[in-house]
Each structure stands twice: as structure tokens, then as C-alpha cells.
Amino acid sequence: MSTMSLFPPDALATPNASATDQQLGPGAWVLRGYALDDVDGLLAELGRIRRQSPFRHMVTPGGYTMSVGLTCCGTVGWTADHKGYRYAAIDPETGQPWPAMPHLFLALAQQAASHCGYAGFTPDSCLINRYVPGARLSLHQDKDETDFSAPIVSVSLGMPAMFQFGGLKRSDRPEKVPLFHGDIVVWGGPDRLRYHGVLALKDDPHPLLGANRINLTFRKTR
């Protein structure tokens, strides 16, 4: 059953809702194809970011090496090691500040947030995940931030993925939501701390990015 069917028509209204928008919860949406017009610019900026701060596979406090490659841009970036999870202004791999967030990245994130009713979104960090076939992201909450009033904005590029959008408890059964090249997911308000993750990616190469999926996740950390 589609998640959209769980909500009456008046609950689906946002200031700029379109026929292709899909509601996942009271404050959560999938914007189908919303980033397609910006793909070339996003990938060009990504090339600059990864040259300055390359993708790496971080090790969790429990000693698990993440299957997803990660880098960041913005005033702070997310890091993980044996000490825990945190945001830091310096990239631990390079010893230099993280790359600045490109204007195009910021503008797209703000436009998507505003489209869903979250005006004034000012992310200071963008986590950039690279998935290859078999890579996955287990169910988790985004709770390393100090400001939960701002939404999360997540942009999908490249190979399709099966997004899991759960409840406020880990034990809540997640909804499975297919995501495709150019889709954006926005969640905030009562949905801000919902568990979410990505199932292991299938080997389904994309015409532009090959056997890669890139995910840009914008957050206001403080």
C-alpha cells in the first residue's frame, strides 16, 4: 500500500505541492526528480569537493568499517572513529577545513526545504555518501545535531536505492521507498528523528554515474 494513501487529501497540501510529490509522514516528503535540472552543476562541484577531501570509509566506535564512502562540505563535517560520532570543522584525513559548501548545493537544499514548508533552512553541513553495489546504511537516527528544529534534505544521484523510513523507535517497521536519480527526500518537524536507512544496493548501473549512487544530505548542526 502506498504511504500516500495513509493521509487524507487535506494532509497532503504543502505551499508548493506538485502531483509527483509523495508524502511519507506529516512532515516528510519525496520530491520526485526535483534535482534533475541541477545534476551537471552538482557533479561538477562534487568533483572539486572530492579532490580536496576524498571519499573514505569511516570506522564506527564499535570497530565496524562502513560500506559507504563519505566526505563532507560546509563549515563542519560529520566524522566517526573509536571516540564516537561528531561534527568537526577540520577534515581528519587532510588536517584542513572541509571544502566550502557550493552555492548550488545550498540553493537546492533551501528550495527543496521551502517547497515542503520549511522556510529559512540554513544548512551548515552536507554529508556526501557514495554507494557501490552491496553498500548499505543501517537504520539510524540523525541526532548528532544540536538543532532538531531544522529538517533534513537528502538528494539522490545515480543508481536507484531502496530507502527505509521507519518510526521513532528502532523496532518500528520501516516503509520501503524506492529512490531514483534526481529525487529529494525532506523530513522534519514530527518526523525529524525517525529511523531511516538504505538497503544494500543492487548492481544496476546508471547511464551517467555507472555503478555508483551519490547521496547529498544537508543538515543544520547547531
Rank of each mutant, 00 (worst) to 15 (best):
P99R: 00
S18C: 11
L199N: 13
N215C: 10
Q111M: 08
I90R: 09
P97S: 07
H196F: 05
G69P: 00
V155F: 04
V76K: 12
A109P: 02
R173W: 11
L42K: 03
S125Q: 11
Y85S: 08
L108S: 01
T146G: 11
W98T: 06
A119V: 09
D204V: 15
M101L: 10
A100R: 14
V155I: 15
R56Q: 11
H103C: 01
T217D: 02
L24M: 10
L137E: 00
F180N: 11
P99L: 06
P54E: 08
A135Y: 01
D38I: 00
G120Q: 05
A44V: 09
K83G: 00
G95W: 03
S138H: 10
V132A: 14
P174T: 09
R173V: 15
D40M: 02
Q164S: 13
T79H: 15
Q141R: 15
P26Q: 13
L108H: 04
V39L: 11
M159R: 06
I90D: 08
G41E: 11
D144L: 10
L6H: 01
P102L: 06
L179C: 12
S156A: 15
L70C: 08
Q23P: 06
P15A: 10
V68L: 07
G117L: 03
W29T: 02
R56T: 14
F148C: 07
R48G: 14
L209H: 07
G182H: 06
P207G: 13
T122K: 08
Q96A: 13
K143L: 10
P61T: 12
G25I: 04
